[in-house]
Nucleic acid binder design. Structure first.
Length: 271
DNA sequence: AGTCGCGCCTGGCGGC
DNA sequence: TGCCGCCAGGCGCGAC
């Protein structure tokens, strides 16, 4: 469940901790595929280069190298860890990138919903092509949302989780954002009123920024590149709080399956 | 074209 | 104590 705040946390740490003068010495692939096959010649593609910087697009991580970019998605349970040679390789460490300094960048992913692919310099990637705007950018504004929601009848929660509308929002943060905006997750997008949109945008920004500040939410698998857990799960208003009391009105938090995912909400506060 | 539901995958947990 | 079945969900894809 790494969503935008968790991926952002990982990117910031890797950007700081990876050295642009540390060259890749060797790449060990312990299996040929994650969710999809990885490039067979990944080692040949990476060796002798160094990571210049690390950026994020939605939930994708981009490692910038002189000859191109390494694209990665954490899926449900993926993590990138920076380790020393002394640390043991564990079960589910699928890719190990070893630097000349002896440090290792390790991709660990028990459920293997993650992905790793190579993008040659100047190339586009199929998976990045139809992504919507970043939720923390000015492109995600009232005019954009109004236009994009008018002729649609999907429930607002599913709309928020669709990366073609806006990137980075998954099941946890969609529930949290809609609680803060006081909008029911089941409301159809074309029933969202014009004057509700500013509050929705504000809720998106607040929830994501607070979660980034807390280092993300750790539910089950998520850890940062330093192996640390986030703290935002302790700040959840609704997610994972079935039958607990709403902090605003004291009624019981509800949970229901929506689009084959658990949706948590307060039926009194959210309309 | 919009909407919906499936399946991938493993570890953890509840129930018997 | 052990085993079975269910659940978690990001995202592409196929069906309607």
């Amino acid at each position: 469940m790494p969503e935008l705040p968790e991926v952002e946390t990982v990117c910031r740490q890797l950007r700081t901790d990876l050295s642009s003068s540390d060259k890749i010495k060797r790449v060990q692939m312990n299996r040929p595929d994650l969710r999809w096959p990885m490039p067979e010649d990944l080692s040949k593609l990476l060796v002798q280069q160094s990571v210049q910087t690390v950026t994020r697009r939605g939930k994708y991580i981009l490692f910038h190298l002189p000859k191109g970019r390494l694209l990665s998605h954490l899926g449900m349970s993926g993590s990138w860890r920076l380790q020393s040679t002394a640390e043991e390789i564990r079960k589910h460490d699928h890719v190990v990138i070893e630097f000349t300094s002896g440090r290792r960048l390790v991709f660990h992913d028990p459920r293997r919903f993650g992905m790793i692919d190579w993008m040659p310099l100047g190339s586009e990637h199929k998976l990045l092509k139809s992504l919507g705007p970043e939720p923390l950018s000015n492109a995600f504004n009232a005019e954009y949302i109004w236009k994009k929601t008018r002729k649609r009848s999907v429930p607002i929660k599913l709309w928020l989780m669709n990366n073609q509308n806006v990137v980075g929002i998954g099941n946890i943060y969609a529930s949290e954002i809609l609680f803060r905006a006081r909008i029911s997750p089941f409301r159809k997008t074309n029933k969202i009123k014009h004057d509700e949109i500013p509050k929705l945008i504000e809720s998106v920004r607040e929830v994501l920024l607070e979660a980034i500040d807390a280092g993300g939410s750790s539910i089950r698998d998520y850890v940062s590149s330093k192996g640390e857990q986030g703290n935002f799960q302790d700040c959840h208003d609704v997610y994972g709080r079935k039958n607990k009391l709403c902090f605003v009105c004291n009624s019981k938090i509800q949970v229901r399956v929506q689009g084959s995912r658990s949706t948590y909400w307060c039926k009194v506060c959210q309309v």
